[in-house]
């Protein structure tokens, strides 16, 4: 448990940042046109001044801004993220319902990108002038330059329409709801195209990064020492070099998690994947601010969790940190 102390510090700092996100959310709600009461009154088709005043008192809108902030913070702490007037239900339930789909998509893409990306990078680093190496260079450029939503649409045209291998949209077949294993296979079938689309950008960036990093590490003194000792090349590369070459990639994974989530908004919209990203898109169309801001809060939380996990992974991989407390 030697990693417990620094991780605890990270947790406390993260909670403080999270409170800041809540305050930001509150400020954004203040800036958003129309408050809760005017939305309700609008839906009721007008109301008497007394009713409006009563509603304002009920929602605490008759109080000062700092007092309203206090009320808002208290509500968020107790899990009350507001009420979505478009979906006509509390926001928290909406989000919790959509969260698993997003996590499934993002984590699958991340694993895919990490495994394929580092494998490509490391194999190509062993032959810096080889075909694979050139492929990695070109692919990483192309992967960075193609807008992810467009890649998704092209995937649909090719792999769902031209060669109908995969379903066009959704997360499961609505017409034939499967059960047990059948359901799992159905979801995986639907997952392929979105996960590959989202993962592709990161395959590009991780393969390039791990290639550069591996080339750097392979020219280090301790690798020459390992070779001079007569260790087999395989052992030098995969035992001595790999661990250090992976460090920048792990850092990158943590730093880019927020962007990965942002990419998920676009990919989920393209593939009608019922996650938080598509919920964000739907709530923008309806100007549903409570839902939109709650998604912002939740995604910030996801990014934080990812950062803490990255930190932990880094401590487990880095031989310099591994041996000591911190």
């Amino acid at each position: 448990m030697r990693h417990a102390y620094p991780i605890a510090i990270r947790l406390v700092q993260s909670l403080a940042l999270l409170v800041c996100v809540v305050v930001l959310n509150f400020l954004l709600i203040q800036l958003a046109p129309g408050d809760t009461v005017s939305v309700i009154v609008g839906e009721m088709g007008g109301a008497s001044p007394e009713t409006i005043a009563a509603l304002k008192a009920e929602y605490g809108l008759d109080q000062s801004i700092p007092a309203q902030l206090g009320i808002y913070l208290g509500k968020v702490l107790t899990g009350d993220l507001g009420y979505s007037h478009y979906f006509n239900r509390p926001v928290l339930g909406l989000i919790l319902e959509r969260l698993p789909a997003t996590i499934l998509l993002v984590v699958t893409s991340l694993i895919l990108a990490f495994v394929v990306g580092t494998a490509l990078g490391i194999f190509s680093a062993r032959r810096p002038k080889g075909i694979l190496s050139h492929f990695v260079t070109v692919f990483s450029l192309a992967g960075f330059s193609a807008p992810v939503f467009w890649t998704g649409l092209m995937m649909l045209i090719v792999f769902a329409s031209l060669i109908p291998l995969f379903p066009v949209s959704g997360m499961a077949d609505v017409a034939r709801p499967g059960q047990g294993l059948g359901y799992v296979l159905d979801v995986l079938h639907h997952l392929v195209l979105p996960a590959v689309t989202l993962g592709m950008i990161y395959v590009a960036s991780y393969s390039r990064l791990s290639r550069t990093s591996m080339l750097d590490v392979l020219s280090a003194d301790y690798i020459r020492t390992a070779r001079a000792k007569g260790l087999p090349e395989r052992r030098v590369v995969y035992k001595h070099a790999l661990r250090n070459a992976l460090l920048p990639v792990v850092t990158m994974v943590g730093m880019e998690f927020g962007q990965l989530f942002a990419g998920a908004v676009l990919v989920e919209t393209v593939f009608n994947w019922p996650g938080l990203g598509r919920l964000a898109y739907e709530s923008i169309l309806r100007r549903d601010y409570p839902t939109l801001l709650a998604i912002l809060l939740f995604s910030a939380m996801l990014v934080m969790v990812a950062n803490i996990l990255t930190d932990l992974a880094y401590r487990l991989i880095d031989p310099r940190i591994r041996g000591r407390g911190r």
Partner: peptide
């Protein structure tokens, strides 16, 4: 700290919120 704060907000989502509001 300010930079870290902005880093935990997913960029596209935050921009979407700003443009919507």
């Amino acid at each position: 700290k300010v930079t870290e704060f902005f880093q935990i907000l997913p960029t596209l989502l935050f921009a979407m919120v700003l443009v919507t509001i």
